[in-house]
Design a binder for these strands. Structure first.
Length: 582
RNA sequence: GCGCCCGUAGCUCAGAUGGAUAGAGCGUUGGCCUCCGGAGCCAAAGGUCACAGGUUCGACUCCUGUCGGGCGCGCCA
């Protein structure tokens, strides 16, 4: 609808140029807006005010010229000039009747567009370290990423969803060591668990699994394990040195093969846990990309060589530095440590280079807001390696704070007292969780109230929207014995204010999808769906649908069928179900 | 100290690329089922868009500064 009007206006402007009424070189970025006030018609265009200065004409005079050149169209009832020079467009009922027919014909494809066609996008999200279960903070990234991916697909882009598995590095060694120590405890050893180890109960579960499979085969005495180990923090030492010493000791005592066995066991169990959590949350991936594969393929070394060759590195204090400050970062970054190991940043550089090499036009990373300081350095790498930093968009998602009514729930990963995503889903249900996560703009802090999400009442927007859908389904169940099939000719019966309002809202859907996709803002869709549900409920309460007047009944059934379709299309994108009964 | 994000109704939040009288939900107050699902509908009250300047026909929106809140500034991941 909007697009159609834009075409008509573009045509008018082109005519004016051809006639010499306005200069040729003028930019004519025509924008039509929904009016807020029905007195201003359906759409308003401010092009006359924008072009007035450059065209050396008064806005209202220019508006008049534009209107004269506007092609006649059976969707347009009248066009008016208002205020300082707005051109207000009033649509005919015909335009909306055609819309209902269009929705019922195009069905699940209604609202899709091609504005993103031809673009391949890789979207990486969640990518939590496989050192423990997903918690509620990850849930927001998951819900947001999945909805965004659906939106981008809806506008025609080719989307590749990826999870980056950090299966290398020190955190994983801490995990393996934590598991082994718990295993030793299960074998009957008594020991003081390191303060920097992973404390969660899931570590016990993995250790128990290990114990079931290998009995006491991997046992060592506590004395051997802890002999001459640098003291822990609570013994006046340093917790980092303590855990590092324990990792080293574990590797020595177990040997490469047994250590890897424990390491892989932990990784495997936790990753499977994460995968199934996400799947039950309705979030799936095209690829799970292992960090370790970068190392085995020597991608990291290759990337560093590239940087070296381009002269963007230097050595200092025995370490190799990347001159990222030359590319907008606030300081240079170490890529190879004094001890010869790659930093986390080094593998992340390689990963992003790998992404680019796979041929994606655009990369989207969804990160927690606490990683924002990391953005300039990763963009610096892209620039240094000759790729435009514009090909990468980092979307930062702010924290979610859990509330149970007024009570704020505490979360802490290390102490093992966090609320897991699984617990959240089991408590409030998948639909409510998915909806609540994305109903706020991602850069806004989110207060997630468990009680509100669970309440099956009018203060819960999820149920409000789903209820509209279920109500429509219910009407059709009552209609079943009579015969309804969409008949375009009956639509002229529609036109009372409630029907009109509903049709206007239905016509906005494609614009909302485009806007939400363009701005990476799925929350726009949640607000739209609430509006749509409200317009339906209002209509429903004011007018009976299953009436004797055959033609009007048919028309209204077509209207609510269209409404049902759009509700389903929208809910599908945000990952919420459309229940026929609730 | 420097950097990023945020500040809109009592509360939780929308207001894309500057547009006409700044909008929802909750909460509050008062109404609505003989009828297709009351998990619903209607109405009222509620605002110095944190503050001060600037840019222009026009600023919640853009720029500068101030105040307040969150987060980040490792040879951790």
């Amino acid at each position: 609808m909007k697009q159609h009007l834009q075409t008509l206006f573009t045509h008018a402007i082109a005519q004016l140029k051809a006639n010499g009424d306005i200069p040729q070189d003028i930019i004519d970025d025509i924008r039509l807006e929904r009016t807020r006030n029905t007195e201003h018609g359906d759409f308003a265009c401010n092009i006359a005010m924008i072009l007035a200065k450059k065209g050396h004409k008064r806005p209202r005079d220019l508006a008049l010229l534009i209107i004269e050149q506007l092609p006649t169209d059976d969707a347009i009832a009248k066009v008016e000039i208002a205020g300082p020079g707005f051109i207000n467009v009033f649509l005919t009922p015909f335009a909306y009747h055609a819309l209902i027919d269009n929705i019922l014909t195009t069905k699940e494809t209604y609202g899709r567009s091609q504005i993103g066609a031809g673009q391949s996008i890789m979207i990486e999200f969640v990518s939590a370290n496989p050192t423990g279960p997903l918690h509620v903070g990850h849930g927001r990234g998951a819900a947001y990423g999945a909805a965004l991916a659906n939106l981008l697909k809806a506008v025609g882009s080719k989307v590749h969803k990826e999870y980056y598995v950090n299966d290398a590095g020190r955190q994983m060694d801490i995990l393996a060591t934590s598991v082994w120590l718990r295993y030793l405890e299960l074998c009957g050893e008594s020991l003081t668990f390191p303060s920097n180890g992973y404390q969660g109960d899931y570590i016990w579960d993995i250790a128990a699994d290990l114990h079931r499979h290998y009995a006491e085969d991997l046992q060592q005495s506590t004395k051997t394990v802890f002999e001459n180990i640098s003291p822990d923090a609570n013994q006046g030492g340093d917790k980092e040195l303590h855990i590092d010493a324990l990792i080293k000791r574990s590797q020595e005592l177990l040997g490469e093969k047994s250590y890897q066995l424990i390491f892989q066991k932990g990784l495997e169990i936790i990753l499977e846990n994460i995968r199934s959590d996400l799947e039950q949350f309705g979030v799936t991936y095209d690829e799970w990309f292992a960090e370790s594969s970068l190392n085995t393929n020597h991608t990291i070394a290759k990337t560093i060589e590239q940087l070296k060759a381009a002269g963007h590195t230097y050595e200092q204090n025995g370490a190799l530095w990347f001159r990222s400050s030359a590319f907008g970062d606030e300081k240079d970054r170490v890529v190879i440590r004094e001890n010869g190991q790659f930093t986390y940043f080094a593998s992340d550089m390689a990963y992003h280079l790998n992404k680019l090499e796979r041929g994606f036009d655009h990369l989207i990373n969804i990160w927690g807001a606490d990683h924002h300081g990391y953005v300039p350095r990763i963009k610096a790498v892209m620039t240094a390696l000759g790729a435009s930093a514009h090909r990468l968009t980092v979307l930062l998602v702010q924290f979610a704070t859990l509330y149970r009514g007024k009570e704020r729930l505490q979360m802490s990963t290390r102490s093992g007292e966090f609320v897991t995503l699984r617990e959240l889903r089991e408590e409030v249900g998948r639909d409510a969780a998915r909806f609540f996560y994305i109903q706020r703009k991602s850069e806004q802090h989110l207060n997630f109230d468990l009680e509100l999400a669970k309440s099956q009442s009018n203060d819960n927007p999820v149920y409000y929207i789903q209820y509209a859908y279920a109500r429509i389904c219910s009407v059709f169940r009552h209609e079943k014995n009579k015969v309804w099939s969409h008949n375009k000719a009956t639509l002229k019966q529609l036109g009372n204010p409630h029907e009109q309002a509903l049709m206007v809202t239905l016509s906005r859907y494609p614009e909302v999808i485009e806007m939400a996709a363009h701005a990476y803002e799925p929350h726009q869709l949640t607000y739209y769906l609430r509006d749509l549900a409200q317009d339906f409920h209002t209509f429903y309460d004011s007018h009976k649908i299953l009436i004797d007047d055959n033609e009007l009944r048919q028309a209204r059934l077509s209207l609510i069928a269209a409404c049902q379709q759009v509700l389903r299309n929208g809910l599908t994108i945000i990952g919420v179900s459309a229940p026929e009964v609730m």
